[in-house]
Structure formats: structure tokens, C-alpha cells
């Protein structure tokens, strides 16, 4: 059932395309609701939290590859989505997504990755200067009015934007993890974490 020697079990395998599609649709709903946010990591975090490292990393990587069909520069940012998966698994194993406040707090880790690694990638890709995204509109005033170095300004701008984005993302993840039926969770590699009184059932089996 679970991941053995890096192999992906069948149910996790079928959840990967859904995770990828959810990443896309999250962004699309954000556009429909006119939200100035990305919301494109929900699928990655949910699949990673339930299925483990490899399914999560695959969701992150393939999401960016498919995104590249219409916006090729997103390819450069693939490591971000893959890093989200790794962090999501670590936090899931520590049962952070079972507690609402810890879940909201986890947004800080995701925002630091999104902002931190994101700023580094932007810095490299755009010739060691500001990028051309929304963050540039915030980082330039930070650089010019406060006199912050360009990279620091870019880092602060990207992280700040990411905090709000990731707070909404992890709240959605928390809601989904809470609502998944127990019989489905039992079949997933990390699903046991989210089964209420799982230890009690184990004791009964013994």
C-alpha cells in the first residue's frame, strides 16, 4: 500500500494528475474571483501531505512543465513547487496539518520558500536584477525609498506577497484533509495521520 523503496503506489499514482489539475484550477479560480494571488500549490501540498515525497515532487514538477506550454518561463520556477512538496511531507509527518493554528503557521515556511528561493531564481534568471512580475512593483519602491539592496527588496516583496497566498492555500489544504473520508485515507501512504483515533484502531487490531 505505502511507498516502498521509492515506488509510488497505485492510488497515489492516480492522485498525481488530479493534484496537477488542482494546481491549475486553483490559479484559474483565483483569476475568476479577481484575487491577486497565485493559489497554484494546493494540489502539490495535498498530494504530498497524503502520499509522500515522490508523488508530491512529481505533481510540482509536472505542474510547471505543463504550465510551460503557455508560459515557458515558469519552467525556471519548478524547484519551488518541488520544495513545497518536501516541506509538506515533513510537516504532514509531524502532524502540523491536523491543527488549524499550526497549519496557518506553516504558511510562513511555504512563503519563505516561495519568496526566498523565488527571489533567488528571479535574481539569476533576470540578469541579477528585478524581475518582471507583480513583485517588481513592490520591490522597486522598497529599493528606492528605503534604500534596500535590490536582492533584499526583491526577497521582502516576494515573501510578503507569498504569505497571503500561502495562508489561503494552507487553509484550503486543511479543509480538504479534514473532509476526506476515512476509508479513502486508510488506503494512502500518509493517510493514517489524518484518521481520527488511528492509534486506537491499531490497538484494537493488536
Amino acid at each position: 500500500m505505502a511507498n516502498q523503496k521509492g515506488k509510488i503506489d497505485k492510488l497515489s499514482l492516480f492522485l498525481i494528475p488530479i493534484g496537477i489539475a488542482v494546481n491549475f484550477i486553483g490559479g484559474q479560480i483565483a483569476i475568476l474571483l479577481k484575487l491577486p494571488l497565485y493559489l497554484d500549490a494546493i494540489g502539490t501540498i495535498v498530494v504530498a501531505a497524503l502520499c509522500g515525497y515522490w508523488p508530491g515532487i512529481v505533481v510540482g514538477l509536472v505542474s510547471n512543465i505543463l504550465n510551460a506550454i503557455s508560459s515557458p518561463t515558469t519552467l525556471f520556477y519548478a524547484p519551488l513547487n518541488m520544495a513545497f512538496a518536501v516541506v509538506a511531507v515533513i510537516l504532514s509527518k509531524r502532524k502540523w496539518f491536523k491543527n488549524f493554528f499550526k497549519t496557518v503557521l506553516s504558511a510562513l515556511f511555504f512563503a519563505l520558500i516561495g519568496g526566498g528561493i523565488g527571489a533567488c531564481i528571479t535574481w539569476l534568471v533576470y540578469g541579477f536584477d528585478f524581475g518582471s512580475g507583480v513583485s517588481a512593483m513592490f520591490s522597486i519602491p522598497l529599493h528606492q525609498t528605503l534604500g534596500l539592496p535590490k536582492f533584499v527588496a526583491q526577497f521582502i516583496a516576494e515573501t510578503s506577497i507569498d504569505v497571503l497566498d500561502k495562508v489561503i492555500t494552507v487553509i484550503a489544504v486543511f479543509g480538504v484533509l479534514k473532509a476526506i473520508p476515512m476509508r479513502f485515507l486508510a488506503k494512502l501512504p500518509l493517510g493514517r495521520i489524518y484518521i481520527k483515533d488511528a492509534e486506537m484502531y491499531e490497538d484494537d487490531e493488536d
Partner: peptide, 17 residues
Amino acid sequence: FFPTISPLILGAFSSTE
């Protein structure tokens, strides 16, 4: 956003089996 994305994900997950 939440009442839209949650049923979408849960519905998609339920069809996986």
C-alpha cells in the same frame, strides 16, 4: 474561494478509486 475549491478536490479524489 474555499467553498469552490474544496468540493472540486473532494469530488476529483472520490473518483480516483
